[in-house]
Each structure stands twice: as structure tokens, then as C-alpha cells.
Design a protein around this nucleic acid. Sequence first.
DNA 1: ACATTTTCTTGTCATAGATCAATGCCCGTA
DNA 2: TACGGGCATTGATCTATGACAAGAAAATGT
Lengths: 192, 192
Amino acid sequence: MFDQINRHVTKCTNLSTEELAYFNSILQYRPIPKKTILLHEGDICNFEAYINKGCIRNYYIDENGFEVTLQFAIEDWWVSDIASFQDHTPSSMFIETLEDCELLILSPQTKEDLMARVPKLERVFRLMVQRNLAVLQRRLFKTISTSAREKYLDFLKRYPTIPQRVAQHYIASYLGISPEFLSKVRTKIARK
Amino acid sequence: MFDQINRHVTKCTNLSTEELAYFNSILQYRPIPKKTILLHEGDICNFEAYINKGCIRNYYIDENGFEVTLQFAIEDWWVSDIASFQDHTPSSMFIETLEDCELLILSPQTKEDLMARVPKLERVFRLMVQRNLAVLQRRLFKTISTSAREKYLDFLKRYPTIPQRVAQHYIASYLGISPEFLSKVRTKIARK
DNA sequence: ACATTTTCTTGTCATAGATCAATGCCCGTA
DNA sequence: TACGGGCATTGATCTATGACAAGAAAATGT
């Protein structure tokens, strides 16, 4: 059950058996059914969840009720609203399971304890956030500078497994285009 | 000369006088004239720079030669291409001074040393990156979900001092709209 | 297997914003 | 004081994408 997450965490540092055991002991295992909203806008995010199995997205809802998907997360990813989690401030996003999931969860307190007891993990988490940031920077750039078609093709290249797992209108909301237009883009691509 | 950066760094942790002294001793002071390109696409970013004075932007150039400004940075901010800096991989962005600047610089090696010697700073830098990430998440959301007008008004609210310091076409490239259209948006706002 | 809901497609029309071109402005340099 | 080069503005088109509507297809539960 912890194999996957342990491999993940030790990718960029090495931990002793005791450290790993401690780490695993504080993770809370939670199976969650699909279509469950784990975090509502306005809530304070009290989890940082490693996905052992399943698929999750987090998204915003704008003033007109339109959803903007910030991220899809699948096996071996973490999901959270870091800002809300860190500062205990109300979140402005939603987090929702798209499939039945198995999660390994850190609460703010256990994470603090963990960092205090295994300081090496501070670095691991920093690197994780950095990677996240780099990915998001690139995405903003692409969002601003390319057409719907290119964004979709780029998405397929980077996340080839996602389209088989989630409904297309979610992908549209990730790309920042309407579902109808995504459909048109797809038929055009298919025709060629 | 180090007052500002020391206040900045001790905002979320407290360091002993020796730790601070060590930190300051490894910072490299560099005055840089305006319009200097500090990092070219393809280069490996070998600095993480704290801005003591001045204004900097980093930006991408797309396949059609259009610039997309990722970020303006002024006093009390850090600039770098973290991904390139961390992994020693070629950067895909440019970093350019917009005014004469005074920088305090970390190289990858000195940063490693610093982290090893003052582990508390690991946390400080993680929090910095997290904050960055949260800001960028919000920006992506706004970029996707709002009109040029709203984005501009939002920009004015969040960064009220920037417009006085940088040319308008830079702001347009930050907002992801053409300079001409920004001009039109502005006149419309002014008329009301 | 059927009914109901959700998702996807296709068409028409509307619009925010891009592109291009022309003009004037400001500012640094000689 | 004049001149040249970037900037900003304005107006006239053009285009990618959105909005709406209706139907087809696929998924879901009973």
C-alpha cells in the first residue's frame, strides 16, 4: 500500500527505514467514491492527498458559473489547495474525485510534525512545488500564446491517458475553451 | 544593504545573528544597467536574484516572435527560472532588467551550501515558491475566465505601482492581449 | 432492456480581440 | 533646435472562438 508513495518520496532524497516507517504511520488511508467533492470554495483545505488510485480534478467557478479546471491529478500525484492548506485561509477552489479513489492523506498538523521530525522532506516538498510551478508557468504561456487546436494537441501529448478517463467537457474547461468548440476542433483534427 | 532582504527572509522564520551573517556573506551584490538581458532562452539559469532596487521582467517568446511576459518583479522580489536553476536544464525564458537594478544573487552552489548550513531556510524557500504558485494559479484562472478589461483592472489593483514604471506594451504582453487593444480598453475605461 | 440523464456533435449567428495601417507624441542624441 | 526611433492611439477590417439551439449518442441506474 505504501510502496508507490515511498518510491515517489525517495526519488529525490534517501530516508532511513525508521523515517519511512514514521512517514507511513502518519498517512491516513481513505477510499473515496467518485463524484465526491473533497473541498468546496470557502472551505479551509485540511488535506494534502497523495493519489494511490483514481482521478481527481480541482477547479474554480467564475462569476458566470463557468468552471475552469486547474488540474487533473491521477496516480502518483498530490492534490490540495496549498495556499489554503498552508495558511488556513478559505479556499477559492473546488476539489472533486472523478473516479473512485484511494488516497493517502496528510493534515496540516501531521505535515508540520513530519517536517519537524524528518527535515529532509522539507526539500522533497519544495522540489515538488517547484516542479508544479514550472509546469504551470509553461501552461500559462501556452494558454496565452496558442490556438485552441494547439492547446488540445499539446494536452494530448502531455497527458495521453487523461482523455480516456475523463469527460471531454472537463478537458475543454482545462483548455479554457467551450465544450462545443473542443468538439469542432476534434472533428477537424480527425478529418485530416 | 542587507536590511531589506534580511527582513524579508526572517518574516517566516527566525535566524540567529550568525546565520544571518553567513547568509549575507554568500550573497553577491550586482548593480545592473537597464535593458540588460540576464538570461536568454537556451541558457542555463545560474542565479536566483533578490531585487534590492529596480524592476525586472521575465518573458517567453512564442513561435511567431511574440513576447509573453510571465512576471514583473520589483523591490523585495526574487527572480529566476527556478526549473532551470534547480535542474541545470536550458531555460525557455528570458529575464531582462527594465530599470537600473541592484541585485543580491545566489548561485546554485551557494544555495545548496546555504540550505545545508541553515536548514531552516529550506522552509522559507518552500513557502516562497508556494506563494508564487498560488498567485500563478489565480492568474491562470483570471486569464482564462475574464475579459481584457477585467484583467487590466485586476492588474491595476494588484500591481498599482507597475504601470508607472513600465511601458504599456509590456503590460499588454503580461495580460495576453495586443498593445493596440490595451490602448482601446484604457480609453474606454477613462471615458466612463 | 428501458428510461433517464449526461455527454457529444453540428449548424448558425454574434463578438471580443487581432491585425494592419496611418498619425502623432515623446524623448534622447547630435 | 532639429531629428529619428520607439510608443501610444485610432480606425477599418478580419478571424477565432463563444453562445445558443437541437439532435444524436453514450452512459447510468432500475
